[in-house]
Structures are given as C-alpha cells and as structure tokens.
C-alpha cells in the first residue's frame, strides 16, 4: 500500500464498504396468508426489498423459498446483507415463467415456509400478461389460511387483482461520495392495500 496520492495516481483504491441501503419499512408490511406484489422498473429497489424480507424471515429462524425465474439472484450480496443462506431454498427456472408458477404452487402446497418469493422481474412483460388470471387466483387460494407470505416481484403489475398489498418501487437517487458508489435510496409507494 502506498500513500493516497500514489494510489490515486495508479488508479487503484481499496474498496470501501457500501452505504447501508435497506428498505426499513414498508407501507402496511408484508402480510402472512396473502399475496404482496412488488413492481417497478429495473434498479428501482425490488431486489433490495426482497432481500430485506428474506433477512427478516431467516432471522426469525423460519425458512424461505425463492423461485427465481431468470437466475438473477446473487447469493453474495444476499449473504452480505444478512440473509442466512442455509435457510433459503433457491429454485432457478431458466427464464421459464410456467415452471416458476408451477414451482411456487408446489412450494405453497407443501407448506412450512415463512416466505415464498416469486421473482418474475426480468421476464418479458408481454409473456407475463399472457399468464392466465386463474394461475394468480390459484396461488392466492393456495396461500390463504397459511402463515406464509407470497411475494411477487415484477416489472409491471400483473397479479394486482389477487394481491392484498401492491407496492410500487421508485428509485430516488444513487449515493456517491468522493467518486465512490455508496449505494442507492428507494421509495416504496403503496398502491393497493385491502382494509383489515
């Protein structure tokens, strides 16, 4: 290691820890026995919210399942955020929305998970709109009267008729300091919440 001036001259610097960018609270919370839909464009904080939920559930000694339609989950950043990976079942569906829905249905039918997340965020919205509404109603029926949370991540709201809570994620700003990327700030806006 040299002096800061020398390191700057060489163009290399030790990477600092990123700033804390958790989604601390959500309007209405994630409700057990119901579908919560999180939608938003790429980079709007959907994954941050998902990882915050996984961390919260695994910290309660419960098990989680992530049905990852497009193999986009990053175990490293999840573990860095505090998710207990040994409590996480990860199903990679290789871009097949049908397999992802079927896998989520099987996991809900099997029961015992504190949270089942269905990540459809990288799939083509056109393909998602072609999913018959009956599939969403089937998922809602499967989760009713169970202590499981079903999170659906997507780009546009496709499961909203069946969702009890619908959140729209919006990116506010990226945080930079001294030319270093520190993290991002997001906002979660509740678009739908069934009165309890």
């Amino acid at each position: 290691m040299g002096t800061p001036a020398l390191r700057d001259f060489l163009g290399f610097r030790a990477k600092p820890p990123a700033e804390v960018i958790p989604v601390e609270r959500i309007p209405g919370g994630l409700v057990r026995g119901a579908v919560t839909e999180i939608c938003g464009p790429a980079g709007s904080g959907r994954t941050s919210l998902l990882i915050a939920a996984l961390r919260e559930i695994t910290a309660r000694q419960e098990f989680c399942a992530l049905v990852d339609s497009s193999d986009a989950f990053d175990p490293h950043s999840a573990a860095g955020a505090g998710v207990e990976l040994e409590r996480l079942l990860w199903v990679r569906c290789g871009g097949n929305a049908g397999h992802a829905l079927k896998a989520a249905d099987l996991l809900l039918a099997g029961g015992g998970f504190g949270l089942v997340a269905l990540d459809l965020a990288d799939l083509d919205p056109g393909a998602l709109r072609r999913i018959p509404p009956a599939s969403w109603y089937r998922l809602r029926r499967a989760i009713e009267n169970t202590p499981t949370i079903l999170l659906v991540l997507d780009r546009e709201p496709v499961a909203r008729p069946c969702a009890s809570v619908a959140l729209e994620m919006q990116r506010q700003e990226a945080v930079w300091s001294d030319r270093l990327f520190q993290g991002m700030r997001f906002e979660a806006v509740c678009r739908k919440r069934k009165a309890g």
Binding site: R25, G28, G29, L30, G33, A34, I57, T146, P147
Partner: peptide, 16 residues
C-alpha cells in the same frame, strides 16, 4: 391480516 386473509399472523415489517 387484511380481510380475506384470516391466516395472517401479522406484518413482517412494522406499520407505517
């Protein structure tokens, strides 16, 4: 839990 979700044990995140 919201209506129609009688199995709810409560939100994971606090209300806000």
């Amino acid at each position: 839990a919201p209506s129609g979700t009688s199995g709810g044990l409560g939100p994971v995140f606090p209300q806000a």
